[in-house]
Amino acid sequence: MSEIQQKLVFSILQHLTEVSAKAPEGVDVESLEVAIQCLGQAFSMDVADEEHKKQYAIGSPLEHIFKYGLALDASEDSPISGLIKKALDTAEKNPIKSREEQIFEEKFQKYLTTLTEKGFFTGTEPGSQEYNDRVEKARSRLKEEEEKANKVRMEKAEEKKAEGNALLRENKTDEAIEKYTEAIELNPYNAIYYANRAAAYTSLRRHDKAIEDCKRAVTVDPKYGKAFSRMGLAYFSLGRYHEAVHAYERAKELDPDNQSILQSLEIAKKKHADKVAEEGGGHGHSHDAGHGHSHDGGHGHSHAGGTPDLSGLMNNPGIQNMVNSFQS
């Protein structure tokens, strides 16, 4: 990517982050945050990183530049308009490559250097048909080698996941987390690994970490419903019922017949309603019992600060089903 392209991507990320923070009406903020994470991961950029700001940030907001560009476009005779169009034409001839393509090209250039040193191109002139044919042959060979190596990594990652699942069943949760982490390092593009590690974090009541992993999972695979349901459980366990409802609703959209999700969604909705009623009434009681009990028959008292009593929640069949279905 050229420097201009990098700065453009960074400006877009900054703009989307600002929109997300303002949460305007009609914008699905959580989906927008997932999009920002996807773009940041694809281009290896983080708008909060000070080094990235120094390297890519520009002086003016993207919205101002866009408005200025529209004004210039309306003036066909403007001298600078021609310069801008020329720059855009240049950018079109050098399209942005994905992160994976960039990594492969970097490896390929090193591979070509090694082949040149070994005499692979001896007797050919750069730019000649023979030379270009050998370059393409080298590219095909490297792709084949990369595919084989990638297959080995994927198989190893699956082994680590299976080991993690076995350890989690034995309640060796910390060790299970280590195995899931190893699987992620081998293949960071598998949503199941993040979701399984989230399940392990949940069992340790490290719910913030579970939420982080669930967000990573849906960044990799936005249609992975189990990650949304586990995100809902983590939010619920922190007493963040509104966010739990939102996560469960997304899970329901992806798996509408899952009874565990449907039950958990209803529980979260009722707990959210109780919390709203408490905050509105100022009496500290839920609306359905009048004595500070939860909706499930008085077995799920809330502690101060809105954090639920997990021992009571575990008696609920919806939550039990969620726990039983932790491992993918």
Rank of each mutant, 00 (worst) to 15 (best):
G164N: 02
G127E: 05
F43T: 04
D73Q: 02
I103S: 09
E100Q: 03
S2Y: 12
D257A: 12
I177N: 01
E63N: 07
D257W: 13
V276R: 04
E100I: 02
Q263F: 13
E130T: 12
Y224S: 02
I4Q: 06
M45W: 08
S98A: 03
I211F: 06
I96V: 09
S20R: 02
H293V: 13
K151H: 04
F104A: 06
V135A: 01
L83I: 14
N258H: 03
E159Y: 09
F108A: 01
N187W: 05
I36S: 00
H52T: 04
H301T: 11
A244D: 06
Q320Y: 02
E105A: 08
Q55Y: 06
D288W: 15
H246A: 15
A48T: 12
N196E: 09
H301W: 15
S294Y: 14
E278T: 07
T90Y: 05
R99W: 09
V152H: 07
K156F: 11
E117P: 13
K53M: 11
C38R: 12
I177R: 01
R197W: 14
L112A: 00
A176Q: 01
V34P: 01
L115A: 03
E63V: 11
K223F: 14
R230K: 13
C38I: 13
K226S: 09
E279T: 10
A176D: 00
E147N: 07
G318H: 00
R240C: 08
T181Q: 00
K97V: 15
I65A: 10
G119R: 00
G312S: 02
A304S: 08
L233V: 07
I192E: 01
D77S: 10
V29M: 05
N150A: 09
T202H: 14
S11T: 09
L112R: 00
A210C: 02
D73V: 03
I211R: 02
K110P: 01
S81A: 14
I267H: 05
K215E: 12
K209W: 12
D309Y: 13
I65H: 04
R216T: 09
S128A: 03
E50Q: 14
N324A: 11
Q41T: 10
A183H: 03
E266V: 15
I12S: 07
E158F: 08
K85F: 14
F120R: 02
K179Y: 08
A289Y: 08
G119Q: 00
A234D: 00
A57T: 01
